[in-house]
Design a protein around this nucleic acid. Sequence first.
DNA 1: TTTCGCGTTGACAACGCTGTCATTCGCATC
DNA 2: GATGCGAATGACAGCGTTGTCAACGCGAAA
Lengths: 337, 337
Amino acid sequence: MHKKASIHDVAERAGVSIKTVSRVLNREPNVSQATRTRVMTAVEDLSYRPNLFARGLASVRSFLIGLLYDNPSASYVAGLQFGALGRCRNEGYHLIVEVLDSKDLNLGKAVHSLVTESVLHGVILTPPLCDSPAVLEALRDADTRFVRIAPARHIAEAPEVSIDDRQAAHDMTAYLIGLGHRRIGFIKGHPDHGASHARFDGYCAALREAGISLDESLCLQGFFSYQSGMEAAERLLTATERPSAIFASNDDMAAAVLAASQKYDLRVPSDLSVAGFDDSLVSQVVWPRLTTCRQPIADMAAAAVSMLIQRPSEAVVTARRLEHELVIRESTAPPEG
Amino acid sequence: MHKKASIHDVAERAGVSIKTVSRVLNREPNVSQATRTRVMTAVEDLSYRPNLFARGLASVRSFLIGLLYDNPSASYVAGLQFGALGRCRNEGYHLIVEVLDSKDLNLGKAVHSLVTESVLHGVILTPPLCDSPAVLEALRDADTRFVRIAPARHIAEAPEVSIDDRQAAHDMTAYLIGLGHRRIGFIKGHPDHGASHARFDGYCAALREAGISLDESLCLQGFFSYQSGMEAAERLLTATERPSAIFASNDDMAAAVLAASQKYDLRVPSDLSVAGFDDSLVSQVVWPRLTTCRQPIADMAAAAVSMLIQRPSEAVVTARRLEHELVIRESTAPPEG
DNA sequence: TTTCGCGTTGACAACGCTGTCATTCGCATC
DNA sequence: GATGCGAATGACAGCGTTGTCAACGCGAAA
């Protein structure tokens, strides 16, 4: 086992001071090209890597980005994390993951502990954490930068990354209407998630534009979970006049609708069309595969990381909105009869 | 915004030296009870949290645990991570997540960078990384502790956490045989994952014990992916004499078998029994729900964390084996006719 | 009473890097 | 030739902890 190389070793080998090595490593200006290459060579030779802790202690930059989440829908978190990790790696940052309980009364305190303790460079906030006043206040208080993913409410000066959930749900609903459906059930998402309301709005708007009046009895509350989708589906499918299509606010709930329709011997898509949202693994694993709406979760997370690490000098972007995409599969078709 | 409290503030408030504060915080012996409570009170009052970087720099302990993974099956990683995070939080540690490419030729170098850079206290290795010689060597080289999750091969002195994959697959196969199945198809897992071989072994053993001779044509190679499961299922179901049951090495592939059987108009479980492995979300979301084998992924990860942070003084556990559990659902039944 | 030992405490250096500021050097300008 | 100026470089202090070691106080043993 060879000993870890320190900055001194590099400096000595390159024939410069440690400060100059530091300058090269941090891409600071005012280093001659010759010195720069000499240092880089030494770094390579010794496979030297600066110590994260020392850097964090000595400077304000910490190279650590926090990903905070609650209520982990596995595929959602995994997607986010994957995107964030990719960008972090490219930029030499690391990702520190933390689970929080948004119903915890000490949430603010927990966040405060976290950021003061580890001096995070910045934090990525996922729903529903991104709309928690306690979290936001704690972050402001600790003077820590953050980016919110798909928040419910806009906040001035607070950077965010999202898709146009309203438009996306509108598109999906319009697509179903275009197929000829008139009675379209809707299963709402968790009320704590901002996207839930936006999606419902989009659904309503599309109906309105098509001159279809909103039937409240077709709009049921769900919570993004399979179980909640199942309950909603049961009610929709056992109603006297059942819908010819059901649009669920995420794939897990749509999968539940699929299961429920099996139970009641309804053929999908001939007897019932089903649409989901997210384009998660689940949507491709069920049969028939789900028509859904792809949101570029990984790209959103990557964008969030970029926003966090951009130098303040650069033009500051406070909001990015990425594109969604309808993914048409086998679970939707024109209604029969 | 109040300023961050430092250890000096705490020391002053408690009327002791910073060293004593440090001692209390690290639960070191030889501090009087009176002083201890006085310090703790001051800590509470100022909501002081020790700086992670300073701690890491000054001591060997870093309070940072790395979770390394490749090829993320979302539910698997999410489960692991969830378990690890819970234990970390309790112990005051943090989790740094990192994606690695096990086919990368510079894998060893990447790992080396990672651990020297961030001075991780320890590392959790998931399959197939846990069986990569390059990774293991890099870790040893950097003198970093690690725990392997479900490794293929045992290595002396290398701590690991696993379930008895062989026994689990044996149990499932025996269960199918007990239902009356004689022709049981098997879809293997990714050959790079150690568990794949163990599971196949268990399947073979159960057949042998029941006096059923192994039919190689019923054992197909899969790769844990839905797609690979679909291909295997197609071949099994279109064979001249198709099996009455199929046991897939994970749930994703089992879900594919379900989809394929729909395609060929086979009723599950009356025409075909299907069993999976993992008890992931997918297994509950498909219809009929999958009979599968639950492995306590979160518990495994939590155990791994505990093994990493146990003081060397304590009795060193080098291998922990957790219990699996058969989960019988609607996708399996006695064969018809 | 003196001595010893142990439980308790604090002063100070060190961890490996970056920020600040001083110094040197080469070159253009007057 | 003297002067000024910016680019290039280095010396050194400090970031907030913990490790080391010395010092102190108090009760038990001699």
